[in-house]
């Protein structure tokens, strides 16, 4: 009996130590990441997106059980625990009570997600491995989703009209269009590989004339590819390029602000010529076109028109 009592006391001490060493709620690391993202506002302003401010959008960090809603009040980060809106590990901008909010998994959950799924530079989820993903990467992801919040707040109707009738109701299943009509068509894939190679050369070219030459070469390949696809399928591609490409461009520039040119180049640019199945290639293509637009017309973001594809805007600016 004495032994059981002593064993019971040992258990109580063990349980107390377990509780005291635990961390509950949103980890301080997520709050620090949010503050770091906010602190990048001045540099993000230099990109030129009018009225694009992270502080305008609440950031919901989902830890698997609850949403921890981060907002900026009087320069301080405020955290509120709420019932989870989506109850899913997604990075997105979502309308909550009439306003678009950023939703991201907590950094710990994101690391687990990457580790569990072992996604690397291919795939639709992220461009980072589990070992790479940390503070700067999560901050860049927050800015990516904040760009979506900005896009949908200002240009919701225009964006919804990008996708033509046949696929306008697919919403979350648009990726299947890419799988069914793009990735499964060898001719389209072959042209895409050439286009990606051209885009990379254009991005890395040092003179404006060389960039222009590569863009014009890209244009010919793109026109040839587009003839193989229906207007409806092309509208889905345009949607991903415009919406995700622009957000990926912001994410990559934020990453460059945090990590510097060399690491940014290695992460976002060095392998941009690789064809990947799924929608991630449009992130890269859209980002590349945004980078090229920066070279040809650095105020292209003013009054951006989502009814036009990035290609149309790029070619207009080359002709100027």
């Amino acid at each position: 009996m004495k032994g059981r009592i002593l064993y019971g006391i040992f258990g109580m001490v063990l349980a107390t130590a377990t509780v005291l060493t635990g961390s509950y709620g949103l980890s301080s690391q997520n709050i620090e990441i949010y503050k770091e993202a906010l602190n990048l506002q001045d540099k993000v302003d230099e990109l030129g997106f009018e009225g694009f401010s992270l502080a305008d959008y609440k950031v919901r960090c989902y830890d698997g059980s609850y949403d921890y809603v981060l907002s900026a009040e009087d320069g301080e980060a405020v955290v509120e625990k709420e019932k989870s809106i989506l109850q899913a590990f997604v990075g997105t901008a979502y309308e909550v009570e009439g306003e678009y909010q950023v939703i991201v998994p907590s950094v710990e959950r994101f690391q687990e997600l990457l580790s569990a799924l072992s996604v690397g530079s291919s795939g639709d989820i992220a461009s980072f491995s589990a070992e790479q993903y940390g503070v700067e990467e999560q901050a860049a992801t927050i800015w990516h989703e904040a760009m979506h919040a900005w896009q949908f707040t200002r240009y919701e109707e225009q964006i919804q009209n990008i996708i033509k009738a046949e696929y306008s109701s697919l919403d979350g299943n648009l990726g299947n269009v890419i799988t069914d009509y793009i990735d499964s068509n060898p001719q389209v894939v072959s042209l895409y590989k050439q286009e990606l190679d051209c885009l990379k050369k254009a991005v890395f070219a040092t003179s404006i004339d060389d960039k222009k030459a590569y863009v014009l070469q890209y244009r010919k390949l793109e026109e040839e590819r587009r003839q193989l696809l229906t207007e409806d399928v092309l509208s889905v591609e345009d949607y991903y390029e415009n919406v995700e490409g622009m957000a990926y461009y912001v994410e990559s520039k934020v990453y460059e602000m945090e990590k510097g040119w060399d690491i940014y180049k290695e992460q976002y640019l060095n392998e941009m010529q690789l064809y990947t199945e799924g929608t991630h290639k449009y992130y890269i293509i859209g980002m590349a076109k945004c980078l090229l637009l920066d070279e040809f017309q650095n105020d292209w973001k003013n009054g951006f028109d989502f009814t036009k594809s990035l290609s149309e805007i790029l070619y207009e600016n080359i002709v100027r």
Binding site: Y62, F89, A116
Partner: peptide
């Protein structure tokens, strides 16, 4: 970890049961 991610991704009753 993988099952936890699946539970979070799937959502709904199945996701809850798995959680």
């Amino acid at each position: 970890s993988l099952l936890g991610i699946a539970a979070g991704t799937v959502g709904g009753a199945g996701g809850k049961a798995l959680k």
